[in-house]
Design a binder for these strands. Structure first.
Length: 753
RNA sequence: GGGAGAUUAGCUCAGUUGGUAGAGCAACUCGUUUACACCGAGAAGGUCACAGGUUCGAGUCCUGUAUCUCCCACCA
């Protein structure tokens, strides 16, 4: 007669077992596909791989991470149990701007020094130290979620291997003419002191004033602007070619005294201008507006730079404004306009202010020499003439990559259509340095704009530095998304021809948030199609945002986050995992509350108690019957379960995790515990030896058979449900498995599904 | 300005291919010499936003309306 283990007699205490279970899994080596056990004596032939979207090294685990980890862990554990050769590869992201600015702030606060006081080398040393420390935190927290990641393959977006991948990719694109250096009106973040890409801009709605005015009394056309201070940089006024009001002035150049500044303004005709808007005339400021830059290109206009990298007016802005902040300069210009009777109208409007996603700084458009990826340029791609846009489109169009939910495929295409060349250089020190060198003598390195004069410098682009010591490397680093774009294959050893790369690329699933479909998903497709001529992943599963009960995003700045670590502490990891994934479908946001997590803590306990009960009521069972030896009614219960199980399997195969979770929860609690156990309870009780001698031998035998069958059914159903629940709630199931597994069984995490 | 999504019980949300409306939480009644009060049984709660249409049959498909949310965009 078996004794019920003592541990089972107390309520389930997640806290006391989780750390140890995780350690046991890690030590088993089964997170690593190279160590996975055979399946029915056969090696695992089918590969299944997910590369973890790397969290920022600086971060602490938030609910978004938790959701991502849970979904991926469910998929991986499910496939591992099904017998696939599973790889889930972890990594962290150096997140250049975010990380550097945290360290800069710290240094400025503690030592009162700027990055320039420290110098590049010293700052990088400090940032590296910080990143290393920080990385350990996020890794520890990731483990607390139960994530079955292969830590032996841990990658970092800025380590030596990834750097080689970046240099190799850059060089190839450079040689194909897809990366070029050029002078463009770019997005400048004065706070972060760097350029940023279009995708890193967040528009903020703000109240503003639209001023309508003339440059000077003798200038015939009035213009409108919310930013009159930029107008000292105007070199033209554009009107619609069909606009009768202004036809007579087209082609004429006027010299005006405007805000203490002499400006030369040519009147030009351009179809871009909307006759109905404002005065129907547009002051063209080529240096500080992208639209105006394009007009400049079309009409070959000169430009005047009046705003500098610190969002202050330059010397060229004229004596009245030079040195002032743009906001001060605006007031100054308005004052000047009023004094000179040139202000015709003021009108309140709401305007979209571009701000930098990472720093919140107000983004200025400034012309600068930068590195770009040409997305519309034709090149020879494995024998075909293609553009990078073509490659991105094709992967989805021909079904190599499936995006879930599929409505995002349309979103993806819209984005590609509107895509401009991608500015990839950053004036941040922490990141992959542009692998380009210039001949020393021919280059005068100065802050900012003097580079413009150096566009004909001798340039070397290579994976390794050029020979000789008269070369100087480009100061800039690359957009962090450039290295992230290579993530699915740089983590597997590319550019080396590795076994991992052959086995696991294209990866099976990319699971990430829909908010980074452009930043990341599209660029991974671009990079992988371009460099490997294959899609980086067969399926993209996009999850939604985790929000609070007021439907707000969880964010550090709002301070409204549910701290997953606190929830784990209070209710156990399994409870948090269930709460995150129940009812959550692809692409939908999910609301999380503490109550919900609490409810699933009860579920873990229910499993615990049911296990104890089943063990108690079956401890006199000599030999467990197999399924086809059970009584007919018991076989029917078993059939009911296997039907449910195949539904759950199908749900998982088709990424309906929320529904799978709900089904297993419902069956275990409301069918197995509430009904089947209660039924079996009676049958087992009736089968107990009776003291009275009233029952005939025949009846006694029948009762005995039914009892043994009932006991066997309970054990079989419990075991199978524990297996099925494992991907969702790995801890409590693995713990319980210790007590219900048969002698030949291995860890639950590798038990056949 | 363009695009996408949402609207189902008091709250938060599920609802595959059209086939008798579901769960958790909350509230209500009853039960418990007991695997589990981190429990069980029961009842209550819904014109599935609104208006049309397709269909034997619509929460689900189509058209329109309303409200909310999100994304994209160089209207100065």
């Amino acid at each position: 007669m078996k004794q019920v283990p003592e541990q089972l007699l107390k309520p389930f205490d997640a806290k006391s077992v989780e750390a140890e279970l995780y350690k046991m899994w890690e030590e088993s080596g089964y997170f690593n596909p190279d160590n996975l056990p055979l399946v029915n004596g056969q090696p695992r032939t089918e590969n299944y791989s997910i590369i973890l979207p790397p969290p920022n090294v600086t971060g602490t685990l938030h609910c978004g991470h938790a959701l991502m980890l849970v979904i991926q862990d469910i998929l991986i554990r499910f496939k591992r149990m099904q017998g696939f050769n599973t790889l889930w590869l972890p990594g962290t992201d150096h997140a250049s701007i975010a990380t550097q600015s945290i360290v800069e702030k710290k240094i400025s606060k503690e030592e009162g020094k700027s990055r320039h006081d420290l110098g590049r080398e010293e700052l990088l040393k400090r940032v590296d130290e910080f990143a290393k420390q920080s990385q350990e935190t996020i890794i520890k927290q990731t483990k607390a979620m139960g994530a079955s990641l292969d830590w032996s393959r841990l990658a970092f977006t800025l380590d030596e291997k990834r750097n080689l991948a970046v240099r190799t990719a850059f060089k190839k694109m450079y040689d194909d003419g897809l990366i070029y250096r050029g002078l463009r009106a770019i997005n400048w973040d004065p706070k972060g002191q760097t350029t940023i890409s279009d995708d890193e801009i967040v528009s903020e709605e703000k109240e503003g004033v639209m001023y309508t005015f003339k440059y000077s009394a003798d200038f015939p056309i009035a213009i409108s602007s919310t930013r009159p201070e930029t107008k000292v940089g105007d070199t033209a006024v554009a009107v619609h070619p069909d606009d009768e009001r202004y036809k007579e002035f087209i082609g004429k150049t006027f010299t005006c005294d405007f805000a203490g500044n002499k400006i030369e303004v040519k009147v030009i005709a351009d179809h871009h201008v909307d006759k109905e808007f404002g005065t129907g005339a547009l002051g063209v400021t080529p240096a500080h507006s992208k639209a105006d830059w394009e007009i400049k290109e079309r009409h070959d206009l000169p430009m005047r730079i009046v705003i500098n990298e610190y969002a202050k007016m330059t010397e060229d802005a004229g004596t009245l404004l030079a040195g002032k902040k743009v906001t001060e300069a605006r007031e100054e210009v308005v004052k000047w306009l009023k004094e000179n009777n040139l202000l015709i109208g003021e009108e309140k409007t709401t305007q979209q202010i571009p701000t930098a996603e990472r720093t919140g700084g107000l983004v200025e458009t400034i012309p600068k020499m930068q590195w770009f990826v040409a997305v519309n340029k034709k090149f020879n791609h494995f024998g075909n003439e293609k553009t990078l846009k073509d490659l991105m489109r094709e992967a989805v169009d021909n079904g190599e990559t499936k995006i879930l939910p599929d409505r995002f495929e349309r979103v993806y295409h819209h984005w590609i259509n509107d895509l401009h060349d991608w500015c990839i250089s950053r004036q941040i020190w922490y990141g992959h340095r542009v692998p380009v060198w210039y001949k020393k003598e021919s280059r005068i390195k100065d802050e900012g704009l003097s580079e413009m004069q150096n566009s004909d410098t001798e340039v070397y682009c290579g994976i390794n530095p050029p020979e000789g010591n008269d070369w100087i490397q480009d100061e800039d680093t690359l957009d962090t998304w450039f290295s992230s774009a290579l993530w699915t294959f740089s983590t597997l050893g590319w550019p080396n021809d590795t076994i991992d790369l052959k086995k696991f690329h294209p990866t099976t699933v990319m699971e990430t948030g829909y908010d980074i479909i452009f930043f990341w998903v599209a660029r991974m497709i671009l990079a992988s199609k371009y460099l490997l001529n294959e899609t980086p992943f067969k399926t993209v599963y996009l999850h939604g945002l985790v929000r609070d009960m007021q439907n707000r995003k969880f964010s550090k700045t709002l301070g409204n986050g549910i701290d997953p670590l606190e929830m784990i502490e209070k209710y156990g990891t399994d409870a948090l995992r269930m709460a995150l994934v129940v009812g959550n479908g692809a692409g939908n946001d999910t609301k999380l509350s503490e109550d919900k997590i609490k409810a699933y803590k009860h579920f873990a306990n229910k499993i615990w108690n049911a296990t104890r009960f089943v063990l108690e009521r079956t401890n006199d069972l000599e030999k467990e019957l197999s399924v086809n030896e059970l009584t007919e009614s018991h076989q029917n219960y078993y059939k009911e379960w296997t039907d449910k199980k195949s539904e759950i399997t199908k749900d998982l195969e088709e990424f309906r995790l929320g529904q799978a979770t709900e089904k297993i929860y419902d069956f275990f609690w409301h069918r197995f515990a509430d009904v089947i156990i209660e039924e079996m309870k009676k049958e087992i009780l009736q089968g107990a030896k009776s003291d009275e001698d009233v029952r005939s031998q025949q009846v006694e035998d029948a009762k005995q058979i039914s009892k043994i069958s009932a006991q066997s059914l309970l054990l079989i159903l419990l075991r199978e449900q524990i297996i099925t629940m494992h991907p969702f709630i790995p801890f409590v199931t693995e713990e319980v498995w210790k007590y219900i597994k048969r002698d030949k069984d291995d860890l639950l995490m590798v038990t056949k599904w």
